[in-house]
Design a binder for these strands. Structure first.
Length: 267
DNA sequence: AAATGGCACAACCGCGTCTTA
DNA sequence: TTAAGACGCGGTTGTGCCATT
């Protein structure tokens, strides 16, 4: 399939928007809505491509855009969410009403990233991964491929040849060729895995020895009686999974409550 | 005062995903 | 089921402003 470039038509304007163009776009959308972005510029009388109009509206003209510097609270949320989600700017933006993904991305690259690098060498910044004790770590992958369905994970248990196996809620599974024994597979996890997870206060609760837990370092810790299993089977969180938003509120809450650990349901 | 470098922000580009016919 | 179009996202680039030399 051949994709026609968005702005292939000659004569379409590029570059900074003028106040007049802004006005035209704003009044058109306020009057008719944006509908079909591709058709919008023609209908509105703008010499821009639909993509450019969409971006201008979303990043600048929308009435609910919040202007001004980011508050320290907002920056804190961005940092924490970035630890959790990686460069999923739109997902991060969803947690900051009035802020756009582009804006957050800019703030991150020009400000927060450097600050974080300077702040501490020891503090964890990278994507958290499950603890692993397998020395053959180089064979493991952290694919960013999108999760598809929990059945993928089930089929993995049956010993397919897929190079990477993924499942809902973004537990990403390593290459099947790294797996030596099906007996060492972790239990199959379905959608209830996350929704049933509960937050446990470290101060007052004792973790059951047969439950998987998430440490304050956000690493998935196996139950003590399954420690040996994780020598051959490893999970890692897939922050780029396209279905991740479903469970994001849960993770967001977890981060906001940083310092607590959570208990996952028994498999 | 002019030149230069760095920063912040807006906008573009390419690609993956979703939707529709 | 599949091709085509539209949308949305993340990476990158361009540009203007400001501080420094």
């Amino acid at each position: 399939m051949v994709r026609a470039p968005c702005c292939q038509k000659m004569g379409l304007k590029k570059g900074p928007w003028t106040p007049e163009e802004d006005q035209i776009l704003m009044s058109y959308i306020q009057k008719y809505g944006h509908g079909n972005w591709r058709a919008l510029p023609k209908l509105a009388g703008l010499l821009r491509c639909g993509k450019s109009c969409r971006l201008r509206w979303i990043n600048y003209l929308r009435p609910d855009i919040k202007r001004g510097n980011f508050s320290s609270e907002e920056e804190e949320i961005i940092i924490k969410m970035h630890q959790l989600l990686g460069n999923r700017w739109s997902a991060i933006a969803a947690k900051l009403p009035g802020r756009t993904d582009n804006e957050i991305k800019n703030v991150w690259h020009t400000n927060l990233k450097k600050r974080l690098l300077n702040s501490s060498d020891t503090k964890r910044v990278s994507k958290p991964r499950m603890k692993r004790s397998n020395s053959n770590s180089s064979t493991l992958t952290t694919s960013s491929s999108a999760c598809t369905s929990s059945s993928d994970f089930s089929s993995f248990s049956e010993g397919t040849n897929k190079s990477t196996m993924t499942m809902d809620n973004n537990i990403n599974i390593i290459k099947s060729e790294d797996i030596e024994s099906v007996e060492t597979m972790p239990p199959i996890i379905d959608e209830s895995f996350w929704s049933e997870a509960t937050v446990v206060d470290d101060e007052t609760s004792t973790m059951p020895s047969n439950s998987w837990t998430i440490s304050n370092e956000l690493e998935l810790v196996p139950p003590q009686n399954q420690i040996n299993s994780v020598e051959t089977i490893q999970h890692s969180y897939d922050y780029n999974g396209s279905n991740f938003d479903d469970g994001m509120d849960f993770w967001y809450d977890l981060f906001i409550r940083s310092g607590e650990s959570i208990e996952l349901p028994e498999f």
